[in-house]
């Protein structure tokens, strides 16, 4: 996997009057990654992507595609859907894709290819407005794939879909990712980012507050454990050990604690055993992305105050 940069933004900023939609955004997305942009609604995900895609004029700052290009030709090598699938409602899928193919200057034969890719070939002559939301979303992905782009940008691709539709879209995204394409996935759904992405960043109020690998969240520096002893001496035991940071005491004397890096639940068990203490409850919890996300948001809040 090459490590060249697909998209790099430098102090990208967009203000709508007094509202700071995006402030000093410095993002960098590596080639071949499946990159999640995570953030609550209104955190600036779509605005950031809109600027990088030429539809929103930045107030200040800059961005570079593939290490330098900023003009519109570069966008022909990018497949992108922002916010929702956009097509002429009264035109058929085929008629719509003919326009896209002409804009991206690709051969018409690609239309059938992408329609088959997203499973809409049989419905190619139906008007777009007769499509279900899931089909519209699939057509949008197909349209984005028409130039066989290096990068695919998807903004909330599963928004408003039923579970089956969500599974279908995720399947398509993962298939495309397997082909080595870079995928940028903006979402407010943590679970989605965790299932699909290998890298992610977190936006909040138009600011980038975290960027890192999804796998890091699984074995982060601190590990969280829950343990309990039959005799209720767990708390005293925990306080004696300086690598244990007690977070809270749960029901029936179960203790939730953080372990410093280098220490595991196994180690804790070993020490307890050597001191004649027997655990009747021991759970090593790898931090989920959701907890990581909440923690990031919490840290950000404390930074502010």
């Amino acid at each position: 996997m090459s490590s060249s940069i697909v998209l790099e933004t430098t102090n990208l900023t967009k203000h709508y009057g007094k509202i700071k939609a995006v402030s000093d955004m410095n993002l960098s997305i590596k080639e071949g990654s499946v990159f999640g942009i995570l953030g609550p609604n209104g955190s600036g995900k779509s605005t950031t992507l809109g600027m990088a895609l030429g539809v929103t004029k930045p107030t200040s700052g800059s961005f570079k595609w593939f290490g330098g290009e900023t003009n519109h030709h570069v966008r022909k090598q990018i497949g992108a859907i922002l916010e929702r699938p956009i097509f002429y409602p009264a035109f058929t899928a085929e008629e719509n894709l003919r326009i896209t193919a002409q804009i991206k200057q690709v051969d018409r034969s690609r239309i059938d290819d992408v329609l088959k890719l997203v499973g809409l070939y049989d419905r190619r002559s139906s008007k777009f407005k007769t499509y279900s939301l899931g089909m519209k979303q699939r057509l949008a992905i197909g349209s984005a794939m028409i130039s066989d782009p290096k990068v695919l940008i998807l903004d909330e691709p599963t928004n408003g879909l039923d579970p089956q539709g969500i599974a279908e879209i995720r399947g398509i995204i993962l298939d495309i990712a397997k082909k080595g394409k870079t995928i940028v996935l903006a979402s407010h759904l943590l679970d989605e980012v965790q299932k699909v992405c290998n890298e992610f960043c977190v936006l909040r109020n138009g600011k980038l507050i975290f960027q890192g690998a999804v796998s890091e969240t699984g074995n982060s520096a601190q590990q969280e454990v829950e343990f309990g002893t039959a005799n209720g001496k767990g708390l005293d035991f925990a306080k004696e050990l300086d690598f244990v940071e007690v977070i809270e005491v749960l029901h029936s004397g179960v203790i939730r604690a953080h372990l410093d890096s280098g220490f595991s639940a196994e180690k804790l068990n070993e020490i307890a055993h050597s001191k004649g203490l027997v655990f009747n409850h021991l759970v090593a919890r790898s931090q989920t992305l959701e907890e990581k996300f909440l923690e990031i948001l919490k840290n950000d809040e404390t930074l502010k105050s």
Partner: peptide
């Protein structure tokens, strides 16, 4: 109103075009 101009710019049409 349909945002198709927006999508076409995203697809690689310049505003000038």
């Amino acid at each position: 109103s349909l945002s198709t101009a927006r999508q076409q710019v995203i697809d690689g049409l310049s505003r000038r075009e």
